[in-house]
Amino acid sequence: MRALAAPPSVVKSLRLPRASGLFLTSLIVAAIMVVSAIAAPILAPYNPNIVDLANVLSGPTSAHWLGTDALGRDTLSRMMFGARSSLLGPLLVVVLSTAIGILLGLIAAWRGGWLDALLARIFDLLFAFPALLLAILAVALFGKGLAAPVIAMSIAYAPFVARLVRSLVVTERTRPYVAAYRVQGFSGGWIALRRVLPNVMPTVGAQSTLNFGYVLADLAALSFIGLGVQAPTADWGAMINESRGALMSGQILPAMAPTIAVVLVVIAINIIGEEFSDRLGGQIPL
């Protein structure tokens, strides 16, 4: 019978109900990370920066569940404090870029004309600068740390959000329901802000969720190459960098713990974001 199976254009709704176990697990993982970041001072067993040279690279013990690093600092505590900078940076970038993106995208779509064309040109130019490259340039100009990269990456991601918002709003505004609002006498501003914007927000939210994962990876990479968060502040990317010596000597835990944390968060965020976009009917272009 298989030879007869046609592409499912006749019956479109033949989708299996998705197992949402994966989605729930992802939410739990994300929640654990957020809680341990916020409550790090209460939950962490040690001060993350206390050096204990008598007890370096201890491996997992009952006192240090994830062992200690090359300076004898507790890996678990550093992981929990590291979650703060590792999550806060991407959060700032996502909030900033989404806000700027929505504003510019809405203006471009609703206003149209030369303004739309001008913004499109500017976005095209910014697309030529990958986010991480712009972040590196920002560090070169303003020095190491998170502040300059966060601003640079917000600028780099804003055009992606703006372009998405623009295309969604342009599609939406040609729909007859928007025309009906106009004919009823509602003002353009009311329609744009109160009706069209809320209709496109779920898709924008899903895209921004996915962006969070990409930004987290980029900022961690920046700290990993030593241009982001600086020692002795705990940060996942920086911790991986600091533990490379230990890694070479066969002590993989201090490097692997933050590595796994990064991967887990990015996977969880991707699954959450994709679940959102799936529920919206896959409107996200990439």
Partner: peptide
């Protein structure tokens, strides 16, 4: 692919080296 997509290059590098 969901797993691979979540492996930034520096993580891949660390794991491969290890």
């Amino acid at each position: 692919m969901t797993g691979l997509g979540a492996i930034p290059s520096f993580v891949g590098a660390i794991v491969l080296i290890a």
